[in-house]
Amino acid sequence: MRRRDETLAVDQIVRRISIAAGRLALGGLILLLCSVAIFPFYWMVVTSIRPSAQLFEFPPKLLPSADSVFSPYVTLFETSGLGRWLLNSAAVSLTTGLVATFFGAMAAYALSRFRFRGRRTSEMMLLLTQMFPAILLALPMYVVFARLNLLDSLAGLTLAYLAFLIPVAAALLKAFFDAIPVELEEASLIDGASRLGTLFRITLPLSLPGLASTYMFCFIISWDEFLFARMFIRQPENWTVSLGLASFKGEFVTPWDQVMAAAAIVTLPAALIFLALQSYLVRGLTAGGVKG
């Protein structure tokens, strides 16, 4: 009897150890993946505060040096137009995100809920717009924008981004609307709301996670965009941050500490937007509405 108890106890200990080992291994793996993802950002920040003399030391030091300097950050704002470029980018990206999400939502709702001739074709067209290489469209767009006097203006650039992002937003949001049971809207229609009232009271609140992630997607794409900005914008005071960053690469010298400092500053807004919206990204908001 006692022996059996002992084997049972041993069994239990072995099981506990194996569970602990499994967790440890999983934790290690997650840590490894995270560090791979985070390392470039870490390196960016560390490089930006390293004194210029130590920048190309070999072997490279992983830890920030004792005599770290923050002067590149100050110099950046004093000597370059970074502040201006940040504002430009913010204006373009915030507007693009907002407008693309709004019109995308309208289009997605129609595609998801109404049956009309050409619905499937329109849906295919949304995807088709994504199949062209951007450079193929850039040239004709340049010609059209030149005629319309939209070159070298932030409004023009926003328009160009919208042309690309509204279809993406519509396709993304359609999937979210499709997941909302149509009975909820029917119940609302019977309860006395109009179609539009139902959209704003029922459908949109329930698709907040979708709206948030769509907005974020559009924001980040237009924040990072380089090709169109390069082609359409001339004057340095109209540059967006991606153009600004590229301009640091000089013909003879590249101030790497400043480039890294600027990159760190540029990355920040995208990270902030993500943090602000991430609580909406949690799914499961519609749980419990239908079915038992």
């Binding site: 009975e183 029917e186 019977i190 309860d191 109009s194 029922i202 609140p205 509405g289 239908v290 038992g292």
Partner: peptide, 28 residues
Amino acid sequence: PRDRDIAMVFQNYALYPHMTVLGNLSYA
């Protein structure tokens, strides 16, 4: 539908998930 002055109970209940019971009852 909204002008027919009818009420409907759905097979899957179709309760508004983002509203409380109070919100659901008082919606109409």
